[in-house]
């Protein structure tokens, strides 16, 4: 098999999907395309749940879904395995590496030595590729890093068996069989990815997910100053900004990444409407950036009044409307 090429991407799962598929000859695969076919964009604000003592908010779909859906759309057969015993997991990995197979691994970042300490929380849905072994060290292509790194057997075992929510349990996955992918398959994959994303953003009942979820958060924000006090309220806003802007998102809560997908899709599908919605999605991303700036004014202690919290909330209402318009337009497109 040919030499492995490391690609840096915004988001780890897109990166693993893209790199593994490209390595198997699917050379047209890009990060935005993987994200779009996998219906990666989302919004959810889970009530009564706390993450690191802050609100549980996500701007993307559930971990694992992008790889699964993108591979399925292209009829790529995937092998995946989880383990109880770390030694067994390492044996299996060694076997695959010896066969020259590159594999995706789910890991926790708390013990990941090449990450800055400031970023090492108990977050267990990170993904990387192991593409070889030199002596005792596994060669690692982590999509968010600029260059490849390496991990010792103990280090890798530890991150593959991190504990807590979404514990990876040694989860390992890789494509096994890739047929000839036709242009028609790609077009169908894009269409399906868009339709599924429209459903996720517009049709989930309950008011905490999709465009309605954004309004839900805005309502909460209006109450935080009174209910939690300025300091705790500021920390909650900080958590939103981190989920939205941190490394892995491509900026603007994945909205720019989705806009990039729509731009690519417009060319592949030869559909001008998709390019137009891409512009709307860019506007949503820009508004998310504006709201992050407004929120940062609060947790920096520069803005302290209720009207400042209301300004954040108003921006979120506006964003919700922009995204609603974008997905309604998408759902009306006839491919």
């Amino acid at each position: 098999m040919s030499e492995f090429i490391h690609h840096q991407t915004a988001h780890c799962e897109n990166g693993v999907t893209m790199s593994l598929l490209q390595h198997h000859g699917v050379d047209f695969m890009t990060e935005p395309l993987a994200f779009g076919m996998g219906s990666g964009l989302f919004y959810i604000h889970i009530p009564f749940m706390k993450v690191n003592n802050g609100p549980a908010i996500s701007f993307r779909t559930m971990p694992g879904a992008i790889f699964k859906r993108t591979c399925k759309a292209l009829d790529v057969k995937v092998e995946r395995k989880k383990f109880k015993d770390p030694k067994e997991a390492t044996r299996f990995l060694d076997e695959k590496i010896a066969q020259g197979i590159q594999v995706g691994c789910q890991v926790g970042v708390f013990h990941l030595p090449y990450f800055p300490k400031e970023y090492r929380f108990h977050f267990n849905a990170h993904n990387l590729i192991v593409f070889g072994k030199e002596g005792d060290r596994y060669l690692v292509s982590d999509p968010v890093m600029e260059v490849t790194t390496s991990l010792s057997t103990e280090e890798l075992e530890r991150v593959r068996f991190a504990k807590g929510a979404l514990a990876p349990k040694g989860h390992i996955y890789y494509p096994v069989e890739i047929g000839n992918i036709t242009q028609e398959q790609i077009r169908r994959g894009i269409e399906k990815g868009i339709k599924r994303n429209c459903r996720d953003m517009l049709k989930i009942p309950g008011g905490i997910a999709g465009v309605k979820g954004i309004v839900h958060t805005s309502k909460k924000i209006r109450t935080w100053r009174e209910k939690l006090g300025p300091r705790q309220a500021g920390l909650h806003l900080g958590q939103i900004v981190r989920m939205q802007e941190e490394i892995g998102t491509g900026g603007g809560g994945f909205r720019f990444l989705y806009a990039a997908f729509l731009e690519e899709a417009a060319v592949i599908m030869q559909n001008e409407q998709l390019a137009k919605v891409s512009e709307t999605m860019t506007k949503a991303g820009d508004l998310w950036r504006d709201s992050a700036l407004q929120m940062s004014g609060i947790y920096k202690g520069r803005l302290t009044e209720q009207k400042d919290f209301d300004a954040c909330a108003d921006l979120l209402v506006e964003i919700s409307a922009v995204e609603k318009q974008a997905f309604q337009e998408l759902s009306r497109i006839k491919f």
Binding site: E118, Y119, L235, G238, Q239, V241, R242, E246, M295
Partner: peptide
């Protein structure tokens, strides 16, 4: 803007 969020 996000650096401060992480620092906080």
């Amino acid at each position: 803007a996000k650096k401060v969020a992480l620092d906080e």
